[in-house]
Design a protein around this nucleic acid. Structure first.
Length: 708
DNA sequence: GAGCACTGC
């Protein structure tokens, strides 16, 4: 029978395809530089409780080492090998790859867990995750008792999460190796897994330092993986831990410098683009710029000059990429240029690590980068343009050597390179620490200044964040985590100010509303206003806007989107309804990626507050309690109108102005609270709402009594 | 009447 025959042959084809694929995977794995070191690495991990692995790009360390350890018996007693990544996409894509290499469905032996997306099961033994997620897990299981091995990958990036995790893991490892020998009494109850049970209020009050009772816990193996050559810093931090080096696989990249310093790097970049285009062999160009404005201006300049070239030389395709660009436009960098065309990608830092673009042969690096800094005295976090570090320059040039030999044009003289800092300032040195402090306190680490960080944050920044947490009621006068407010706040994956707002809202009977507003405030800008459609977007915004301010406007947007989605779901499939929602967003000039993010956060924090036992009630149509609640929650950023129409921020004394994007920009009420202060040409406040001045003294007397 | 790099729970 023909059908039988075809069935058989297709089964046969499928089978042979399967085996061909397996063979291909095996061949690929054996060819990786790290493969030759499998036995040696296993020995090193057996002999050392802490191991530093320096692996260059393309060594295969992230995908292979966990498999070696699994096969080497490191999960034998049920332990899990956890691998942390600074970024979500990395955790997901690597896990998928490793599951395929192991020939198992994702979520079984190999899985991943990131916020909003957990693809692990009881049988998961190799678990990829974000470092921030593992920190959250530590709040529930301070010994990280599920894990037999923890691998911290990309440690050289030194994100805040990585730094806190390193300090925590150091303590956990010490505790677990002690716990395996000694029995120490504890007043906490334990379940059969050795996990500490939560106390009655749903909040666990344990200290990994004080309660060492881990008789069932086995020692923890710790592996720190870094791509930078600076293993010494990690080794010193871990008491002279052993460091091994694994060869990478990169093609050579020619580094070219300018003879003289450039006064205008944007102009220099433009000239270099055309120089490469006219003189060099085929291959795409990647240009590193500092921000959207620079990217858009170079894009225009290239377009302006192209028509002046001979017809045969006009085949240059310009593609911008930066984080706030809608995803469908971002995808353009992955599309092949038409035949005969050269692609030039104008990118921010997003192309340094987050996005890998194929086909790049030339990199142009002006040597500048925009970074967020933190000013502890004002609490403002301005963005400034600074020179890159050496490590960053190397990372950028490496982007030209992924598929073949390449060239990197550094738009500064060689002696300037020598003057650059070795590596970028760790994030912990330049960020607001209130969340870090809150997390550490929740882990039972009370002495923040004395905590064993790989690099100490500034003392002033620690003190400032403790002051803030005290004013929010999260810390007691003795700087201990308060009960229940501090404990509750530490459980919420939010900025501490927002966490507090949720707790306050439960007392004002408007938690329903505050959950939405806090979710909306937590995401990147909800409104999307392209320059060419400014008027249309303004009209769209009007239909949602509230005279009470931006917070209620955000609430209106969220509710309108919910209503639209619910209606759409009644007549459509879930997929179709979500597609319709994206269309609705576009029509209303709303960034659908941001709204989706807000919806995810909303459902997560709603679950969180339910678990805490907070009452989720709504204030209905009466917005007065909600506005009073805003005053009670955001009193630290209240501002009063001055005779000249500017505002004075009450806690900092700074003169500020309402940002033109606010619905209150023209209305200028007497007294307001705001969400964010950004410094550009002026001090602008964003997301502003009208309140009554008298509410401040009534609802935050502890603070406004001090003012007088 | 402005303009914001990139992550993450």
């Amino acid at each position: 029978m023909p059908s039988m025959a075809s069935n058989n042959s297709s089964t046969h084809t499928a089978k042979s395809e399967f085996y061909a694929r397996r063979q291909e995977i095996e061949k690929h794995r054996k060819a990786l530089p790290i493969a030759a070191a499998e036995k040696r690495l296993l020995e090193e991990v057996r002999n050392n409780d802490i191991l530093i692995i320096v692996g260059e790009t393309g060594s295969g360390k992230t995908t292979q080492l966990p498999q070696y350890l699994f096969n080497g018996g490191f999960c034998r007693s049920g332990g899990i090998i956890g691998i942390t990544q600074p970024r979500r996409v990395a955790a997901v894509t690597v896990a998928k790859r490793v599951a395929e290499e192991c020939g198992v469905p994702l979520g079984q032996k190999v899985g991943y867990a990131i916020r909003f997306d957990d693809l692990t099961s009881n049988s998961t033994r190799i678990k990829y995750m974000t470092d921030g997620l593992l920190l959250r897990e530590a709040l529930l299981d301070p010994y990280l008792s599920k894990y037999s091995v923890i691998i911290v990958d990309e440690a050289h990036e030194r994100t805040v999460h990585t730094d806190v995790l390193l300090g925590l893991l150091k303590t956990v490892q010490k505790t677990r190796s002690l716990g395996a020998r000694d029995i120490v009494n504890s007043d906490n109850k334990k379940d059969e897994n050795g996990t500490l049970l939560e106390k009655d209020n749903g909040i666990q009050n344990t200290s990994i330092l004080k309660h060492c009772q881990s008789t069932k816990l086995s020692p923890l193996k710790l592996i720190i993986m870094s791509a930078s050559l600076d293993a010494q810093g990690f080794s010193d931090y871990f008491g002279g831990a052993r460091a091994v080096h694994v060869q990478g696989r990169q093609f050579p990249v020619d580094i070219l410098y300018t003879n003289q310093p450039e006064t205008d790097y944007v102009d220099a970049a433009l000239i270099t683009i055309f120089q490469i285009h006219l003189e060099e062999s085929p291959g795409d160009i990647l240009v590193f710029l500092t921000g959207q404005e620079e990217i858009e201006s170079i894009e225009r300049l290239v377009q302006d000059r192209l028509p002046k070239l001979p017809e045969s030389k006009r085949k240059l395709l310009v593609v911008p990429i930066f984080a706030s660009l809608p995803s469908e436009k971002q995808m353009k960098v992955f599309m092949l240029a038409p035949v005969g065309f050269r692609k030039v990608i104008l990118a921010t830092n997003i192309a340094e690590t987050s996005v890998t673009i194929p086909g790049i042969k030339y990199v142009i690096d002006p040597g500048m980068v925009k970074v967020r800094t933190y000013d502890a005295s004002t609490g403002i976090e301005p963005l400034i343009i600074v020179k890159t570090s050496k490590a960053q320059a190397l990372q950028r040039s490496g982007r030209a050597g992924r598929e073949g030999p390449g060239k990197c044009y550094r738009l500064y003289p060689e002696n300037e390179f020598e003057k650059l800092k070795d590596s970028t300032t760790a994030e912990i040195k330049r960020c607001n620490l209130s969340n870090v402090v809150l997390q550490l306190k929740a882990l039972g680490i009370d002495d923040i200044v004395g905590f064993d960080f790989i690099e100490k944050p500034d003392r002033m920044a620690v003190i400032k964040s403790m002051e803030l947490l005290f004013l929010l009621g999260a810390l007691t006068e003795e700087s201990k985590l308060s009960d229940p407010v501090g404990h509750q706040m530490s459980r919420l994956p939010l900025d501490p100010i927002y966490s507090k707002a949720l707790i306050v809202a439960s007392q004002f009977n408007c938690l329903e509303e505050m959950l939405i507003v806090v979710a909306m405030l937590s995401v990147e800008s909800i409104f999307y206003a392209p320059r060419e459609k400014l008027d249309e977007s303004r009209t769209a915004l009007k239909s949602f806007s509230s005279t009470d301010g931006d917070h209620l406007t955000l609430l209106n947007v969220y509710r309108a989107s919910e209503e639209f989605l619910e209606k759409s779901k009644q007549v459509n499939s879930k997929e179709k309804a979500e597609k319709n929602l994206r269309k609705w967003c576009k029509e209303n000039f709303i960034n659908s990626r941001s709204l989706k993010h807000a919806r995810d956060i909303h459902s997560q924090i709603r679950r969180n507050v339910e678990q805490m036992g907070l009452q989720i009630t709504s204030c209905g149509d009466d917005m007065l309690p909600f506005r009073r609640c805003l005053a009670a929650s955001f009193f630290l950023s209240a501002a009063l109108k001055q005779p000249d129409g500017t505002y004075r921020a009450l806690s900092s004394g700074l003169t500020v102005q309402i940002h033109p994007s606010s619905v209150l920009f023209r209305m200028k009420p007497e007294c307001i609270i705001f969400d964010e202060l950004v410094r550009t040409n002026q001090n602008y406040i964003r997301n502003v709402s009208r309140i009554d001045y008298l509410w401040l003294a009534e609802l935050a007397p502890q603070f406004f009594a001090l003012q007088e």
